[in-house]
Every structure is written in structure tokens, then in C-alpha cells.
């Protein structure tokens, strides 16, 4: 299968990555090679097979709907790049 530079640009945007021209071209070739490795999957007969999301087929555990974590805003924001008065700061989004 072939992967175009346009496809790479689209994936990069979805993944929120900014790629240089050089990187985009390199990734197009490398992803193509990786997908060629993956094509063998298409030949597998999986018509009657249920998808497996968890290696032990475990079900999601439920717990009582009670608060277990305290408010640790200060601790968590101490490692944030930019905060002010308990708020995370980002470039202006709303005019």
C-alpha cells in the first residue's frame, strides 16, 4: 500500500504533531514499509472471531460511586508549565 504526503499531513494534524517537510516525507516511506508488514493480517480468516480487547477477557470492575481522591489542585499545578490563580493558562481561545 502507498501512503501519500497528504495522508501523512492529515494524520499528523489529527495527532497534533507539526512535522517538517523532511519528516513528512520520511514518515510516508516508513509508514508504508510498516503497513506492508501489517498486510499479512488481511489474509487471516477472522470471520467468526470475536475481537479481544483484554488478554484475560476481564470485565471492567465497578466500585461504589464515592469520592476517593482528595482535592490536590496545588500539588498537581505545581508541575504545570503555566498557571495563574488555580487556572491553567493557554493562548487566548475566545475573542
Amino acid at each position: 500500500m502507498s501512503i501519500t504526503k497528504e495522508q501523512v499531513d492529515k494524520i499528523a494534524h489529527l495527532a497534533r504533531l507539526a512535522l517538517t517537510e523532511e519528516e513528512a516525507h520520511a514518515y510516508a516511506t516508513q509508514l508504508e514499509n510498516i503497513f506492508n508488514l501489517v498486510t499479512v493480517l488481511q489474509q487471516a480468516d477472522t470471520a467468526e472471531v470475536r475481537p479481544m480487547a483484554h488478554p484475560m477477557d476481564a470485565k471492567q470492575r465497578l466500585r461504589p460511586d464515592v469520592i476517593t481522591e482528595g482535592n490536590e489542585r496545588e500539588v498537581m499545578q505545581a508541575i504545570a508549565p503555566l498557571t495563574d490563580m488555580g487556572l491553567y493558562l493557554v493562548p487566548q481561545v475566545i475573542e
Binding site: V38, Q42, A44, T46, R50, P51
Partner: peptide
């Protein structure tokens, strides 16, 4: 469907 779902099914075959 072509990749992720297919791979999850193949995963069961392997298991």
C-alpha cells in the same frame, strides 16, 4: 475496521 478491529481478532487467534 480494516486495522484495529482486524488486529483485535487476530489477537484472539494468537491467544
Amino acid at each position: 475496521d480494516a486495522y484495529y478491529l482486524k488486529a483485535q481478532k487476530a489477537r484472539r487467534l494468537i491467544s
